[in-house]
Structure formats: C-alpha cells, structure tokens
Simulated scan of single mutants.
Amino acid sequence: MPQSAHTVALTAALALLGAPLSGCAAADAPPIGPPAVNPLYVTPAEALTPDQVRYLQQQLRDWPQLERYRAENAALPVAQAGQPRVVFFGDSITEGWGPTGSGTFFPGKGYVNRGISGQTTAQMLLRFRQDVIALQPAVVVILAGTNDIAGNTGPATQAMIEDNLHAMRELAQAHGIGVVLASVLPVSEYPWQPGVHPAPKVRALNAALQRYARDQGVVYLDYYRAL
C-alpha cells in the first residue's frame, strides 16, 4: 500500500481523535459463503510437511505471539510529557510500516508499532493488555479483521470479528485510552487462501464497524474509501 495513503488517513484521524470522520458508509451487503478456514487445520497429519508441522507447533507454543514484543515492551522508555504515545495495533498492514523508532515509522513521534503479520482479532485481543494497555498510550489505532475473513486461525463469522474488536475498544476505554478504529482494506482475493471471495465480507464488516464507531463516539478511519 502506498505510504501516502496511510499518512493522509492517519493524520486526519489522529488530528480529530474524538470525532468520527464523515463519509458514505460501505454497502451493507451480507457476507457470501461460510467462514474460511486455514487449510493446514483440516489437512491430515500424515500429509503435512516438516515445515508445516513446525509452524503448527509454534502456534501451539505461543498462539497470540506474546513473545514477539515482550522484550521491546520492557525496554520501552516512559512516555514523554507533551508527546502523547500512540500504539498502532494490527497485522501485516501495520507491521509493514517498520519497527518502532525506525526511519519509516513516524520518526520523531511517540508512536509504537505493535503489528504482527497474519494475526487475527482473536490473537490481538489476547495480547491487548501486554502490547497496548501496559504501554499507557494516549491513543490506540486498531486495524484488523482481514485475516479473520481469510480464516488464518480458524473459521470466524462477522459477529465473532465484531465481538473481538468491540472488546478491544471497551478495554481501551476502561483504561482511558482513545481509540481510532480502522476499516478493513479492500481485497479481492488472498493468495494463500484461494476461493474465499472476501470483497463482500469486507464491505459488510466495514459497514458494521462504521456504525459501531459512530454509536460509540470513536474515530472511524476509512482506509477502504481512500483506497
């Protein structure tokens, strides 16, 4: 994704914080087809390659990937006065910005990258306390849901995705953290999961998230419309 699209959208959202962005809601079309599932979860054990077995064993050892940012969190300095800390919380689209403090990730800002490629909202919810709340940010930017639609960690209905995102918003609110809730980006297919047809599912989820953000008074960051 072009960095300019990220920059424009996030600058607007972080400037507004308490006020939802205006714009037309995505078409509220019903999802098509059943929830997707990672093919590895339904492949007979004897048909798995050694690399696939190692991947699944790693998932069992640390399913939410709490180990990923544990050391960085411990080494993170206290937030400085006058420079509010913002945590970007998501999957590969967030991780792709670059590491915290790097030249590609908002240099000179008090922003923290806590994206992990391939993660679903269920995994993110489990690490929300460690990778968001414990860092005491002023704001968290949450971008997630596409990997749920892809079935990365098993079948997930739209209601399940919404429940996880709602829980993150509620946890943030309970700890005085402002929320920017981002739309899922447009996608027509997943190379690692052919046959899912995610586009109508993305539109339906975004329409629900936009309504939820409006009702809860949080910022809705409309990547979908921008892209």
Score class of each variant (00 low, 15 high):
residue 163 D to P: 04
residue 172 A to S: 09
residue 171 L to R: 12
residue 177 I to F: 13
residue 150 A to E: 07
residue 193 Q to P: 04
residue 147 N to F: 06
residue 158 Q to H: 03
residue 185 L to Y: 06
residue 144 A to I: 03
residue 139 V to W: 15
residue 160 M to Y: 02
residue 144 A to R: 00
residue 167 A to V: 07
residue 190 Y to F: 15
residue 155 P to C: 08
residue 139 V to P: 13
residue 193 Q to I: 11
residue 165 L to M: 06
residue 152 N to Q: 02
residue 179 V to W: 01
residue 137 P to H: 14
residue 151 G to W: 14
residue 153 T to M: 15
residue 164 N to M: 00
residue 187 V to E: 01
residue 190 Y to K: 11
residue 143 L to R: 11
residue 192 W to P: 00
residue 140 V to P: 05
residue 198 P to Y: 05
residue 149 I to D: 12
residue 161 I to Y: 03
residue 189 E to Q: 14
residue 171 L to I: 13
residue 192 W to N: 11
residue 187 V to S: 10
residue 175 H to Q: 15
residue 198 P to E: 03
residue 154 G to R: 10
residue 175 H to R: 11
residue 140 V to M: 06
residue 172 A to Q: 06
residue 154 G to D: 04
residue 164 N to W: 02
residue 172 A to W: 02
residue 175 H to C: 03
residue 178 G to N: 04
residue 145 G to I: 00
residue 185 L to F: 06
residue 140 V to W: 03
residue 168 M to I: 13
residue 186 P to K: 12
residue 146 T to N: 01
residue 166 H to D: 09
residue 190 Y to P: 02
residue 185 L to E: 01
residue 182 A to D: 06
residue 150 A to V: 10
residue 197 H to Y: 13
residue 165 L to I: 07
residue 153 T to Q: 15
residue 139 V to R: 15
residue 184 V to T: 02
residue 182 A to K: 00
residue 151 G to L: 13
residue 170 E to V: 09
residue 144 A to Y: 00
residue 185 L to A: 04
residue 192 W to C: 10
residue 153 T to N: 14
residue 145 G to V: 04
residue 170 E to G: 06
residue 146 T to K: 01
residue 166 H to V: 06
residue 176 G to A: 10
residue 181 L to F: 07
residue 144 A to P: 02
residue 181 L to G: 05
residue 163 D to S: 07
residue 137 P to N: 15
residue 189 E to Y: 14
residue 189 E to H: 13
residue 183 S to N: 01
residue 155 P to Y: 09
residue 157 T to W: 00
residue 143 L to M: 12
residue 165 L to V: 03
residue 156 A to Q: 12
residue 190 Y to E: 09
residue 184 V to R: 01
residue 171 L to A: 08
residue 166 H to A: 03
residue 137 P to K: 13
residue 149 I to T: 09
residue 147 N to V: 10
residue 160 M to W: 14
residue 176 G to W: 11
residue 188 S to H: 13
residue 150 A to M: 07
residue 146 T to A: 02
residue 184 V to H: 00
residue 182 A to V: 07
residue 159 A to R: 15
residue 168 M to L: 11
residue 194 P to Q: 12
residue 159 A to D: 14
residue 192 W to V: 09
residue 161 I to S: 03
residue 140 V to K: 03
residue 165 L to T: 04
residue 166 H to N: 07
residue 182 A to C: 07
residue 156 A to K: 09
residue 174 A to C: 08
residue 189 E to I: 14
residue 137 P to W: 14
residue 138 A to L: 15
residue 188 S to L: 15
residue 163 D to T: 11
residue 168 M to E: 12
residue 137 P to V: 15
residue 151 G to H: 15
residue 178 G to P: 05
residue 140 V to T: 07
residue 172 A to I: 03
residue 196 V to W: 14
residue 172 A to D: 06
residue 148 D to L: 09
residue 147 N to D: 03
residue 153 T to L: 11
residue 177 I to R: 08
residue 176 G to K: 08
residue 185 L to Q: 04
residue 189 E to F: 12
residue 170 E to A: 09
residue 173 Q to C: 14
